[in-house]
Amino acid sequence: MSTKRIAVVAAGLSQPSSTRLLADRLAEATTRSLAELGDQVEVEVIELRDLAHDITDNLLTGFAGPALQAAIDSVTSADGVIAVTPVFTASYSGLFKSFFDVIDKDSLAGTPVLIAATAGTARHSMVLDFAIRPLFAYLRAVVVPLGVFAASEDWGSGDATSTTLPDRVARAAAQLADLVSGHTTRRDDPFAAVVPFEEQLRRLSADD
C-alpha cells in the first residue's frame, strides 16, 4: 500500500469559510476514494489567509519566508492538489492568484489538480472554466475534468448540503483519486549536479 500526499489550498478569507468547508469535503472524499484504490493518504491544508503578508513580501522581494516556503514545498511535492478559491469580481481571488504567482511556473507540471470555487450565486459557476482551469493549464498541471462549484444555495443549515453538491464532490474526488493513484511526483533536485567543495579541492589538488 502506497502513501499519497494531497495538498489542499484554501483561499477563503473569513472564519468560518465556505471555501474551507468545501476544501475539507473534497479532501475527505478524495481520501475515501484513494483508500478504495488501496492507497493511504496524507493531507495537508494550506490556509492562504494565514500567509497573506508573506505572499505580498515575496512578490515585492522575490524571497519566501519560512512559512510560505513550507507551503510552496508542500504543494509542489504533493502527488495531488485540491485548489479552492472564493469568487471575487467574477474571477479567482487575488490572494489565490498571488500564491500561484510565487510558485515556479514549472513546479506543478504533470501534477493532478482538482479545482473548486465558492460564491454567493450560481451565476459565477463558469469561473471554473474561464479563469481557474486556464491558470492550471498554463502551469501544465493535469486538471481533473470535473470542477466543483458551490453557491450559497448549495449549503443548508450549518455545514449540511441542500442540493447535489455531495454527488459532485464525490465524482470529482474519484476522478482526482484515479489520477493520483497512478502518479508519483518527482521533482529534479536543483543541487543534484553541484560538486561538493571538498571534491572540488580534491580535483584541484590532483591537477597540480
Score class of each variant (00 low, 15 high):
residue 2 S to H: 06
residue 4 K to Y: 02
residue 5 R to C: 05
residue 7 A to W: 00
residue 8 V to G: 05
residue 8 V to K: 07
residue 8 V to T: 08
residue 11 A to G: 09
residue 12 G to S: 04
residue 14 S to P: 00
residue 14 S to R: 04
residue 24 D to A: 14
residue 26 L to I: 15
residue 29 A to P: 06
residue 32 R to T: 09
residue 32 R to W: 04
residue 33 S to T: 13
residue 35 A to V: 09
residue 36 E to P: 06
residue 42 E to W: 03
residue 43 V to M: 10
residue 44 E to F: 02
residue 44 E to Q: 15
residue 51 L to M: 07
residue 51 L to V: 12
residue 57 D to G: 12
residue 58 N to F: 00
residue 59 L to C: 06
residue 60 L to C: 01
residue 61 T to V: 03
residue 63 F to M: 03
residue 63 F to T: 13
residue 63 F to E: 05
residue 70 A to E: 10
residue 77 S to I: 01
residue 97 K to R: 15
residue 102 V to W: 00
residue 107 S to C: 09
residue 113 V to Y: 04
residue 114 L to V: 10
residue 115 I to E: 12
residue 115 I to M: 12
residue 116 A to N: 10
residue 120 G to W: 03
residue 123 R to Y: 11
residue 126 M to I: 14
residue 128 L to Y: 10
residue 130 F to G: 02
residue 131 A to P: 06
residue 137 A to W: 00
residue 141 A to V: 10
residue 144 V to E: 03
residue 148 V to K: 11
residue 153 E to G: 03
residue 154 D to K: 11
residue 156 G to H: 13
residue 159 D to G: 07
residue 161 T to D: 10
residue 163 T to S: 15
residue 172 A to I: 01
residue 175 Q to P: 03
residue 176 L to P: 11
residue 181 S to V: 00
residue 184 T to I: 04
residue 185 T to G: 03
residue 187 R to L: 14
residue 189 D to K: 02
residue 190 P to L: 00
residue 193 A to T: 05
residue 193 A to K: 11
residue 196 P to D: 08
residue 200 Q to R: 15
residue 201 L to W: 09
residue 204 L to P: 00
residue 206 A to G: 13
residue 207 D to E: 14
residue 207 D to W: 05
